[in-house]
Design a binder for these strands. Sequence first.
DNA 1: GTGTTTGCAAAGTGTTTGCAATTTA
DNA 2: TAAATTGCAAACACTTTGCAAACAC
Lengths: 141, 141
Amino acid sequence: MASVQERPFADALARLKEVGLRPTRQRLALAKLLFDKGDHHTTAEQLHAAARAADVKVSLATVYNTLHQFKDVGILREVVVEPGRSYFDTNTRPHHHFFHEDDVRLIDIPDEAVELSRLPEPPEGAEISRVEVVIRVGARR
Amino acid sequence: MASVQERPFADALARLKEVGLRPTRQRLALAKLLFDKGDHHTTAEQLHAAARAADVKVSLATVYNTLHQFKDVGILREVVVEPGRSYFDTNTRPHHHFFHEDDVRLIDIPDEAVELSRLPEPPEGAEISRVEVVIRVGARR
DNA sequence: GTGTTTGCAAAGTGTTTGCAATTTA
DNA sequence: TAAATTGCAAACACTTTGCAAACAC
Protein backbone atom coordinates (compact mmCIF):
# COMPACT_ATOMS: atom_id res chain seq x y z
CA MET A 1 0.00 0.00 0.00
CA ALA A 2 1.05 3.53 -0.61
CA SER A 3 0.96 6.17 2.08
CA VAL A 4 -1.79 5.92 4.62
CA GLN A 5 -0.46 8.00 7.45
CA GLU A 6 -1.55 8.54 11.01
CA ARG A 7 -4.08 11.09 9.89
CA PRO A 8 -5.72 9.42 6.91
CA PHE A 9 -6.58 12.55 4.99
CA ALA A 10 -3.63 14.59 6.02
CA ASP A 11 -4.57 17.68 4.16
CA ALA A 12 -1.92 20.25 3.44
CA LEU A 13 -4.35 23.11 3.80
CA ALA A 14 -5.60 22.03 7.19
CA ARG A 15 -2.08 21.47 8.36
CA LEU A 16 -1.01 24.96 7.39
CA LYS A 17 -4.02 26.52 9.07
CA GLU A 18 -3.30 24.53 12.18
CA VAL A 19 0.16 26.02 12.52
CA GLY A 20 -0.93 29.50 11.54
CA LEU A 21 0.78 29.83 8.19
CA ARG A 22 -1.07 31.36 5.29
CA PRO A 23 -1.83 28.68 2.77
CA THR A 24 -0.21 30.25 -0.26
CA ARG A 25 0.14 28.38 -3.50
CA GLN A 26 3.83 27.71 -2.82
CA ARG A 27 3.41 26.60 0.75
CA LEU A 28 0.54 24.31 -0.17
CA ALA A 29 2.50 22.73 -2.97
CA LEU A 30 5.59 22.23 -0.84
CA ALA A 31 3.54 20.85 2.04
CA LYS A 32 1.98 18.35 -0.34
CA LEU A 33 5.35 17.28 -1.65
CA LEU A 34 6.65 16.94 1.86
CA PHE A 35 3.79 15.35 3.74
CA ASP A 36 1.76 13.39 1.23
CA LYS A 37 4.15 10.53 0.78
CA GLY A 38 5.29 9.22 4.11
CA ASP A 39 8.31 10.10 6.20
CA HIS A 40 11.38 11.13 4.35
CA HIS A 41 14.39 13.42 4.32
CA THR A 42 15.05 16.23 1.90
CA THR A 43 17.46 19.00 1.25
CA ALA A 44 16.37 22.38 -0.04
CA GLU A 45 17.79 21.60 -3.47
CA GLN A 46 16.03 18.26 -3.61
CA LEU A 47 12.70 19.75 -2.67
CA HIS A 48 13.17 22.50 -5.20
CA ALA A 49 13.87 19.88 -7.85
CA ALA A 50 10.84 17.88 -6.79
CA ALA A 51 8.72 21.00 -7.14
CA ARG A 52 10.03 21.68 -10.63
CA ALA A 53 9.38 18.06 -11.53
CA ALA A 54 5.80 18.45 -10.34
CA ASP A 55 5.41 21.60 -12.41
CA VAL A 56 5.22 23.75 -9.33
CA LYS A 57 6.91 27.10 -9.73
CA VAL A 58 8.71 28.06 -6.55
CA SER A 59 11.96 29.90 -6.16
CA LEU A 60 14.79 28.30 -4.25
CA ALA A 61 14.67 31.19 -1.80
CA THR A 62 11.07 30.38 -1.02
CA VAL A 63 11.92 26.74 -0.56
CA TYR A 64 14.52 27.71 2.03
CA ASN A 65 12.18 30.10 3.76
CA THR A 66 9.38 27.60 3.79
CA LEU A 67 11.54 24.81 5.15
CA HIS A 68 12.56 27.04 8.02
CA GLN A 69 9.04 28.20 8.69
CA PHE A 70 7.88 24.59 8.77
CA LYS A 71 10.71 23.77 11.10
CA ASP A 72 9.89 26.74 13.33
CA VAL A 73 6.28 25.67 13.73
CA GLY A 74 7.37 22.13 14.43
CA ILE A 75 6.10 20.18 11.44
CA LEU A 76 9.61 19.57 10.15
CA ARG A 77 12.88 18.75 11.83
CA GLU A 78 16.36 19.77 10.76
CA VAL A 79 19.10 17.17 10.84
CA VAL A 80 22.73 18.15 10.53
CA VAL A 81 25.11 15.37 9.63
CA GLU A 82 27.19 16.81 6.85
CA PRO A 83 29.15 19.99 6.71
CA GLY A 84 27.48 22.45 4.40
CA ARG A 85 24.13 20.79 3.87
CA SER A 86 20.97 20.55 5.93
CA TYR A 87 18.47 17.76 5.80
CA PHE A 88 14.86 18.22 6.75
CA ASP A 89 12.93 15.34 8.20
CA THR A 90 9.17 15.05 7.92
CA ASN A 91 9.20 12.69 10.87
CA THR A 92 9.10 14.87 13.96
CA ARG A 93 8.47 12.06 16.42
CA PRO A 94 11.45 11.04 18.52
CA HIS A 95 13.73 8.79 16.51
CA HIS A 96 17.28 8.45 15.33
CA HIS A 97 19.23 8.10 12.10
CA PHE A 98 21.62 6.06 10.12
CA PHE A 99 23.80 8.17 7.93
CA HIS A 100 25.11 6.23 5.01
CA GLU A 101 28.43 7.81 4.21
CA ASP A 102 28.78 6.25 0.78
CA ASP A 103 25.52 7.23 -0.81
CA VAL A 104 25.17 10.27 1.46
CA ARG A 105 21.72 9.45 2.68
CA LEU A 106 19.77 9.45 5.92
CA ILE A 107 17.72 6.47 7.06
CA ASP A 108 15.30 6.56 9.97
CA ILE A 109 15.81 4.37 12.96
CA PRO A 110 12.63 3.83 14.96
CA ASP A 111 12.91 5.12 18.48
CA GLU A 112 12.50 1.69 20.05
CA ALA A 113 15.48 0.31 18.13
CA VAL A 114 17.79 2.42 20.25
CA GLU A 115 17.88 2.24 23.98
CA LEU A 116 19.81 4.79 25.95
CA SER A 117 20.00 3.32 29.40
CA ARG A 118 22.26 5.97 30.86
CA LEU A 119 22.48 9.70 30.15
CA PRO A 120 24.75 12.30 31.71
CA GLU A 121 23.52 15.25 33.73
CA PRO A 122 23.26 18.34 31.55
CA PRO A 123 25.79 21.08 32.29
CA GLU A 124 25.05 23.52 35.10
CA GLY A 125 22.00 25.65 34.35
CA ALA A 126 21.17 23.85 31.14
CA GLU A 127 18.47 21.41 30.27
CA ILE A 128 18.28 18.77 27.60
CA SER A 129 16.26 19.75 24.58
CA ARG A 130 16.93 16.73 22.44
CA VAL A 131 19.03 13.61 22.25
CA GLU A 132 20.21 12.68 18.79
CA VAL A 133 21.83 9.44 17.88
CA VAL A 134 23.48 9.21 14.49
CA ILE A 135 24.89 5.90 13.45
CA ARG A 136 27.33 6.37 10.62
CA VAL A 137 27.55 3.42 8.32
CA GLY A 138 29.55 2.52 5.26
CA ALA A 139 29.63 -0.35 2.79
CA ARG A 140 30.91 -3.56 4.33
CA ARG A 141 34.42 -4.15 3.06
CA MET B 1 46.68 21.06 37.51
CA ALA B 2 47.07 22.01 33.91
CA SER B 3 47.29 19.51 31.12
CA VAL B 4 49.12 16.32 31.87
CA GLN B 5 47.84 14.05 29.17
CA GLU B 6 48.17 10.37 28.51
CA ARG B 7 51.54 10.92 26.93
CA PRO B 8 53.27 13.30 29.34
CA PHE B 9 55.51 15.08 26.89
CA ALA B 10 53.26 14.93 23.90
CA ASP B 11 55.63 16.49 21.44
CA ALA B 12 54.20 18.00 18.32
CA LEU B 13 57.18 17.01 16.24
CA ALA B 14 57.09 13.39 17.31
CA ARG B 15 53.38 13.26 16.71
CA LEU B 16 53.71 14.53 13.18
CA LYS B 17 56.48 12.08 12.36
CA GLU B 18 54.37 9.29 13.73
CA VAL B 19 51.56 9.97 11.33
CA GLY B 20 53.87 10.67 8.39
CA LEU B 21 53.28 14.38 7.93
CA ARG B 22 56.24 16.64 7.26
CA PRO B 23 56.82 18.78 10.30
CA THR B 24 56.61 22.16 8.66
CA ARG B 25 56.62 25.35 10.69
CA GLN B 26 52.87 25.76 10.19
CA ARG B 27 51.93 22.21 11.05
CA LEU B 28 54.13 22.21 14.12
CA ALA B 29 52.62 25.44 15.36
CA LEU B 30 49.07 24.28 14.74
CA ALA B 31 49.76 20.91 16.35
CA LYS B 32 51.09 22.72 19.43
CA LEU B 33 48.02 24.92 19.60
CA LEU B 34 45.79 21.93 19.20
CA PHE B 35 47.42 19.29 21.33
CA ASP B 36 49.38 21.06 24.04
CA LYS B 37 46.44 22.10 26.14
CA GLY B 38 44.12 19.22 26.72
CA ASP B 39 41.06 18.11 24.83
CA HIS B 40 39.06 20.78 23.16
CA HIS B 41 36.99 21.69 20.13
CA THR B 42 37.89 24.25 17.51
CA THR B 43 36.68 25.63 14.25
CA ALA B 44 39.04 26.61 11.48
CA GLU B 45 38.44 30.29 12.16
CA GLN B 46 39.09 29.86 15.86
CA LEU B 47 42.34 28.03 15.27
CA HIS B 48 43.39 30.63 12.77
CA ALA B 49 42.69 33.34 15.32
CA ALA B 50 44.59 31.43 17.98
CA ALA B 51 47.55 31.20 15.64
CA ARG B 52 47.49 34.92 14.96
CA ALA B 53 47.25 35.56 18.68
CA ALA B 54 50.32 33.39 19.22
CA ASP B 55 52.18 35.28 16.50
CA VAL B 56 52.16 32.33 14.21
CA LYS B 57 51.72 33.23 10.58
CA VAL B 58 49.51 30.72 8.83
CA SER B 59 46.99 31.30 6.13
CA LEU B 60 43.41 30.28 6.67
CA ALA B 61 43.69 27.91 3.70
CA THR B 62 46.55 26.12 5.40
CA VAL B 63 44.57 25.89 8.60
CA TYR B 64 41.78 24.18 6.69
CA ASN B 65 44.16 21.86 4.90
CA THR B 66 45.96 21.01 8.09
CA LEU B 67 42.78 20.28 9.99
CA HIS B 68 41.71 17.88 7.30
CA GLN B 69 45.11 16.23 7.12
CA PHE B 70 45.06 15.76 10.88
CA LYS B 71 41.63 14.32 10.62
CA ASP B 72 42.64 12.01 7.79
CA VAL B 73 45.52 10.56 9.78
CA GLY B 74 43.28 10.16 12.77
CA ILE B 75 44.66 12.62 15.29
CA LEU B 76 41.61 14.86 15.02
CA ARG B 77 37.93 14.18 14.70
CA GLU B 78 35.35 16.21 12.85
CA VAL B 79 32.04 16.89 14.54
CA VAL B 80 29.09 18.29 12.63
CA VAL B 81 26.33 19.77 14.73
CA GLU B 82 25.61 23.07 13.07
CA PRO B 83 24.77 23.80 9.50
CA GLY B 84 27.67 25.52 7.81
CA ARG B 85 30.38 25.04 10.39
CA SER B 86 32.67 22.18 11.31
CA TYR B 87 34.15 21.55 14.71
CA PHE B 88 37.34 19.61 15.18
CA ASP B 89 37.85 17.61 18.31
CA THR B 90 41.29 16.78 19.69
CA ASN B 91 39.74 13.93 21.62
CA THR B 92 39.67 10.98 19.24
CA ARG B 93 38.72 8.42 21.84
CA PRO B 94 35.13 7.19 21.78
CA HIS B 95 32.93 9.74 23.47
CA HIS B 96 29.89 11.92 22.91
CA HIS B 97 28.90 15.57 23.05
CA PHE B 98 26.64 18.12 24.54
CA PHE B 99 25.88 20.90 22.13
CA HIS B 100 24.90 24.04 23.92
CA GLU B 101 22.57 25.82 21.55
CA ASP B 102 22.73 29.17 23.31
CA ASP B 103 26.45 29.72 23.44
CA VAL B 104 27.02 27.50 20.40
CA ARG B 105 29.58 25.31 22.02
CA LEU B 106 30.49 21.66 22.23
CA ILE B 107 31.17 19.92 25.53
CA ASP B 108 32.61 16.44 25.83
CA ILE B 109 30.65 13.68 27.48
CA PRO B 110 32.86 10.86 28.67
CA ASP B 111 32.04 7.57 27.01
CA GLU B 112 30.95 5.92 30.25
CA ALA B 113 28.33 8.56 30.92
CA VAL B 114 26.26 7.25 28.04
CA GLU B 115 25.12 3.71 27.78
CA LEU B 116 23.57 2.44 24.60
CA SER B 117 21.99 -0.82 25.57
CA ARG B 118 20.30 -1.48 22.28
CA LEU B 119 21.37 -0.67 18.73
CA PRO B 120 19.61 -1.46 15.46
CA GLU B 121 21.04 -3.69 12.77
CA PRO B 122 22.80 -1.64 10.11
CA PRO B 123 21.09 -1.54 6.73
CA GLU B 124 21.70 -4.40 4.31
CA GLY B 125 25.33 -4.55 3.19
CA ALA B 126 26.47 -1.77 5.47
CA GLU B 127 28.45 -1.79 8.64
CA ILE B 128 28.58 0.65 11.49
CA SER B 129 31.57 2.96 11.41
CA ARG B 130 30.66 5.16 14.34
CA VAL B 131 27.87 5.90 16.77
CA GLU B 132 27.49 9.55 17.68
CA VAL B 133 25.30 10.83 20.43
CA VAL B 134 24.67 14.55 20.54
CA ILE B 135 22.68 15.91 23.43
CA ARG B 136 21.37 19.33 22.58
CA VAL B 137 20.94 21.54 25.58
CA GLY B 138 19.68 25.04 26.19
CA ALA B 139 19.43 27.37 29.16
CA ARG B 140 16.88 26.22 31.70
CA ARG B 141 13.82 28.43 31.36
C1' DG C 1 -6.84 48.05 1.22
C1' DT C 2 -3.37 46.28 4.26
C1' DG C 3 -0.12 43.28 5.74
C1' DT C 4 2.09 39.02 4.13
C1' DT C 5 4.59 36.47 0.94
C1' DT C 6 7.16 35.83 -3.21
C1' DG C 7 11.05 35.97 -6.51
C1' DC C 8 14.97 37.86 -8.03
C1' DA C 9 19.48 39.00 -7.71
C1' DA C 10 22.92 40.34 -4.71
C1' DA C 11 25.39 39.43 -0.66
C1' DG C 12 27.10 36.33 2.92
C1' DT C 13 29.33 32.39 5.11
C1' DG C 14 32.30 28.75 5.51
C1' DT C 15 35.19 26.05 2.74
C1' DT C 16 38.02 24.41 -1.28
C1' DT C 17 41.14 24.91 -5.17
C1' DG C 18 44.74 26.34 -8.80
C1' DC C 19 49.06 27.69 -9.06
C1' DA C 20 53.47 30.12 -8.48
C1' DA C 21 56.72 30.72 -4.88
C1' DT C 22 58.77 28.59 -0.95
C1' DT C 23 60.33 25.08 1.98
C1' DT C 24 61.68 20.39 3.31
C1' DA C 25 64.16 16.10 2.94
C1' DT D 1 67.04 19.16 -6.64
C1' DA D 2 62.88 16.76 -6.45
C1' DA D 3 58.77 16.50 -4.07
C1' DA D 4 55.76 18.46 -0.71
C1' DT D 5 53.74 22.50 1.26
C1' DT D 6 52.30 27.21 1.56
C1' DG D 7 49.62 31.51 0.63
C1' DC D 8 47.00 34.10 -2.14
C1' DA D 9 43.07 35.02 -4.57
C1' DA D 10 39.57 33.21 -7.07
C1' DA D 11 36.03 29.89 -7.11
C1' DC D 12 32.60 27.19 -4.64
C1' DA D 13 28.35 25.38 -2.48
C1' DC D 14 24.84 26.41 0.26
C1' DT D 15 22.10 29.72 2.46
C1' DT D 16 20.22 34.33 3.66
C1' DT D 17 18.62 38.97 2.63
C1' DG D 18 16.65 43.48 0.59
C1' DC D 19 13.20 45.06 -1.80
C1' DA D 20 9.59 45.77 -5.37
C1' DA D 21 5.80 43.27 -7.27
C1' DA D 22 2.14 39.91 -6.36
C1' DC D 23 -0.96 37.86 -3.31
C1' DA D 24 -4.18 36.57 0.69
C1' DC D 25 -7.53 37.99 3.79
